[in-house]
Nucleic acid binder design. Structure first.
Lengths: 300, 300
DNA sequence: TATAAAATAAAGCATTTGTATTTTTAATTG
DNA sequence: CAATTAAAAATACAAATGCTTTATTTTATA
């Protein structure tokens, strides 16, 4: 009787496992609701999902550092007949050549969405390729050098560009002492620039239409003879006036809004260029993260 | 002992990383310039490429309707030591989790800038390609549908992920009335969730290490029976527990920090998918921008 | 059409395979 | 702390695997 209930649960877990998402969700369930060893192996499987399709019981057990039988028990807990059964299911979720049935399901997806995605992909490729062109590349390297030798670095961006400014200054301030966090409160941009000096650098981020606050910030920096790094979509942008470095790339996308993915990449590239010349960047970040871990900011 | 030597040799003779395109080109070559049986089998392999990764010599021979030895000879003609060698190479081209870059924390220091940029470009391509894979794509579309039918949408992300949350919720709130801005002040996440109801949706963004605040927010949402959309780097993330939709992609890069560019793209894709079904999204944004222009937020 | 050469298939063999069964270890309970 | 149970590891074995060797068929050329 008890066995029957157990069996029922087993099959309930397996009900209609076809897609990768469903299968992973079932594994996730085991990670949470199972015995320690099975749970640990489930965790491994989630990050090494495709290996299940590729290896035998023992081979999988070897690379996952578990007992071979754990793999079999894991498969059965998931509701499969055995490992081979699980393996075939994983394989079918990884198959590039689809069966007639799933092809039909695919065809149901809104055609607009297919067009949309492929157009987005194309514009991502196009925009980000610009970043790797020699001229943009050297602008990025130069900007990084400029930042490195600055006394203090201020970053400004508002509205949707604030996310770019936030990312750059948040990660940057972890690793480099001279980088300060981008101001978020109203008026804080001016407060910050009021204290800025000639040896400081302003990273100004704005795209068409250009935000009045950022253009104004660049003007103030210019008046103070600070160096300005302009991250923008065109040389015709008012940010580029007297800018020390201009990182320029298109933000055009097929959607209703320009895409800022290239901008995000651009600041990541600056950060990477900065880190590549610093011996203690990763150390600083590690220290920072250890602190957060210590005080419960991250779950362990 | 002998086993170890054998294993070592196996891995030692595995030549440089093969791409799927190169391998398929080599198979294509055999299709044209080889003996009838091999050629026919090559044709089959091109349309059933992933099966090579999944099956044994005999199993593959069975489903392809050729002699088992044909499979071995085919492998050797391709320049591999045997079938097992070919199979491992095919597997590595199908692996969803790339390990090429994984742990290289300090390796960047004093690295040639050329290498750095090309490796970054490669990891961008790798990570963003994941977004366009069928499983991730459909997760994005499903998430967009979920958001569309939600009463209210809350977005949470802290530390570096806040930039992603900010972008999504800022642009999203312009176009869609049910999307609210991501909380920025300390404690605001809990304040917001306190008011949330079952018909609301939580978009939770966090990557390893997982932030305690976001994990907690997901827990609360779950307790309130809200739907959770998890944007994260692995199914093993605690955010995925009972999540309605999981958008999962790698964040590995060669630099000292993981790259969140793919995350940025992911939320842009969600926004695009949302907009593609909305007749007034671009109208809303235009109205919004006209307002800002009118009151001097943008320079003209 | 005879025959050497090439291509393919079959047979053979040591290893490895998947899973059922047994043993050991760890956790829980009275 | 002994008894009981659950979980994990070890063992066992028929079936399969990868690859080599041998046999057969096909092809090309004299």
């Amino acid at each position: 009787m008890l066995y029957f209930i157990k069996l029922e649960m087993k099959y309930a877990r397996r009900s209609g496992l076809q897609t990768q998402a469903k299968l992973k969700a079932a594994i996730k369930d085991l990670q949470v609701n199972s015995t320690p060893t099975i749970s640990e192996f489930a965790t491994w499987c989630l990050t090494n999902y495709s290996e299940i399709a590729f290896h035998s019981v023992r081979a999988l057990a070897d690379i996952a550092n578990v007992n071979a039988n754990t793999v079999v028990r894991f498969s059965k807990e998931l509701g499969f007949k055995g490992y081979e059964d699980l393996r075939q299911n994983v394989q079918s979720t990884l198959r590039t050549t689809q069966t007639a049935y799933s092809k039909r399901a695919d065809a149901l997806i809104d055609r607009d969405e297919n067009d949309l995605f492929s157009e987005l992909k194309e514009s991502y490729t196009l925009n980000s390729n610009t970043l790797f062109q020699p001229s943009t590349r050297s602008a990025i390297v130069d900007a990084a050098n400029c930042i490195r030798s600055a006394e203090k670095v201020f970053t400004v961006g508002v509205r949707s560009s604030y996310s770019i400014a936030h990312y750059f200054s948040y990660v940057g301030s972890m690793a480099f002492e001279n980088i300060t966090r981008a101001p978020a409160e109203p008026g804080a941009i001016m407060d910050q620039l009021a204290k800025a000096r000639e040896s400081d650098v302003l990273v100004a981020i704005s795209f068409s239409y250009y935000s009045a606050e950022i253009v104004r910030a660049a003007e103030i920096a210019r008046a103070k003879r600070m160096k300005v790094i302009a991250i923008t979509d065109s040389y015709s942008s008012p940010l580029t006036i007297d800018a020390a470095h201009v990182i320029e790339f298109p933000i055009e996308g097929p959607q209703y809004m320009p895409t800022l993915s290239a901008a995000f990449m651009a600041v990541e590239l600056i950060l990477a260029a900065l880190a590549s010349h610093s011996s203690n960047a990763s150390g600083n970040i590690q220290k920072f993260e250890e602190q957060i871990l210590k005080y419960g900011g991250y779950i362990s």
